[in-house]
Design a protein around this nucleic acid. Sequence first.
DNA 1: GCATTGAACGCAAACGTTTGCCTTCGGCAG
DNA 2: CTGCCGAAGGCAAACGTTTGCGTTCAATGC
Lengths: 340, 340
Amino acid sequence: MPEAPLARVTLAEVAASAGVSVGTASKALNDRGSMRAETRARVRQAADRLGFQIDAVARSLQTGRSYTVGMITTDSIGRFSIPVMLGVEDTLGSGQMSVLLCDARDDRIREQYYLKTLLSRRVDGIIVTGRRTDPRPPLAQRPPVPVVYAFMPSADPDDCSIVPDEAAGAARAVTHLVDIGRRNIALVAGPERHHSARARMTTAVETIADQDAEIACGEPLFGEWSEAWGRQAARILLRRAPHTDAVFCASDQIARGVVDAMREAGKRVPRDLAVVGFDNWDVMTAASRPPLTSIDMDLEGLGRQAAELLLSAIDGHPRHGVHLHPCRLTIRASTAEDED
Amino acid sequence: MPEAPLARVTLAEVAASAGVSVGTASKALNDRGSMRAETRARVRQAADRLGFQIDAVARSLQTGRSYTVGMITTDSIGRFSIPVMLGVEDTLGSGQMSVLLCDARDDRIREQYYLKTLLSRRVDGIIVTGRRTDPRPPLAQRPPVPVVYAFMPSADPDDCSIVPDEAAGAARAVTHLVDIGRRNIALVAGPERHHSARARMTTAVETIADQDAEIACGEPLFGEWSEAWGRQAARILLRRAPHTDAVFCASDQIARGVVDAMREAGKRVPRDLAVVGFDNWDVMTAASRPPLTSIDMDLEGLGRQAAELLLSAIDGHPRHGVHLHPCRLTIRASTAEDED
DNA sequence: GCATTGAACGCAAACGTTTGCCTTCGGCAG
DNA sequence: CTGCCGAAGGCAAACGTTTGCGTTCAATGC
């Protein structure tokens, strides 16, 4: 059993205890060099008898690799960046890598500062993430280590970015509505200046056209990302497009607002009106009455894939360009098959 | 202007460029040793002319300090731990410290593993945080560096923990209801096995007694942390305590459920029924109709204070025991003064 | 019996700093 | 002029690894 080490126990002590030189001890523990199996075992035993824990700092200095990556997030509050970061941390952590967390708080100066300290710490790579899917300018001075932009892509298409396939997600949502027999589909989104709102709506419009369905009001309704806007949009629809039988909302908050207002106006969901949201945010989908069908961007999976891309780049196999991560459709009561 | 460094520029190059020895260059940049002001300046100039960035790894090896702290969170999703972590990162980041993120995902094995790698990286200290305010067993083997438990306290009172003052927050909420003239106050909480639910309710009960008000149904209603439970609780109250004129809910989600169900039952909020929530979670407080008055645990501030406590301990001034971080009352329409 | 070979292991440089101590040297007091 | 002192700056060890190369030695081939 390992003794409680009073101070830090070093490789030299392990070597001494095993009766070999420091170099040999190092090789024994790292499966390098050639030596008798018995020797290797003896070193190993000594190591854990003494409770040896390698000094990562010293090793980094020698090898030039820190087994550390920096994760810069532009937004703090980040409903979206959080799951991405967890995904990143998950695969990196399993791969013996540690993650340095940097919250730039939408401040380019802060971002610069963090970039400097990360490089000073000799990180092996950097992941950049953010609040929205609008492209952002690349990191100030091109860092000498690989960079992957996750969720929020770099404006430079030669950089490596990975983003949710929002367009495919929107298509999926609309197709689902058509599949359950709806033909008069309303589209409600957030602000048109947001890339997410535009991307989702553009594809939704195309898909509706492809499927010979109709767009309620003739075009998407752009507003905000709030429940209040969802409620307001519902009132607009009731007035201007009373025959609407389905709504695709660009966020779950909007969807919940729509559902609430429609229910209060006497519409039955999903019988009179099927509703699909976006984000698959459990807080909203579960509390809504009825629970919401929604598109899940699988942000944690996206984060994991971002980490894979980074690891691959660190290993010398960079994959440039913008990568799309698929969305999933999660069906709940708000689009349950028409009950008879 | 700094030249773009092809490779990493080292202190030796700076020294050479300034015409001094490496040691002197180091002292010049760190304001150590004694030398002519002109020499110091010359070194400084050489440093930023060459774009010198100190190698934090090499410095750590020499000084034994890494200017890095580990942050272990037991829960991933963490509505609560996220703001705490941001607060921690904020004050640590300003203090030249970097934060290593470790998501233990409620797994003791994982936690152990992370602890090992953190120590291997020679962190100067560790912050532990988690999902709930229930005390947790202390870190497995007592680490040789300071530890601060934030939000989720250590079961060992000799450890340094900082938690929100939920009791004071609950008292504040109830007092506010009394202040606006309510006397029949219902209490609705999450599961009784949760420390948060018990702590908030215990103090609420005491405060109501102190203020000569009444508890609707005679005792707190324990349930879940969901909107659905809030709605159910509202129905119970309508049936069993129709004279209730105020509700203190142990979470904003519950509060929103209560408000929704009460409104749908024809009660006017706040005229007939004032409602206070807990957490001040903008998603809930803003979307509720009317917007919710709530208790804010100031988790980011708590995180900042946790970081201060850790820095202080690292500097050799540990502050043992459980520290309470005050809650704030944020008043919104759900308890607006009785309009006449 | 001698040269060759390969396995097993030791040696020491190197990674880029920091820091205690030493040397040099100019100035000042006696 | 001598001695002393303090300021300025150089020297080199040390931090704990990794790794290329060198050495030793037993086994093998002839």
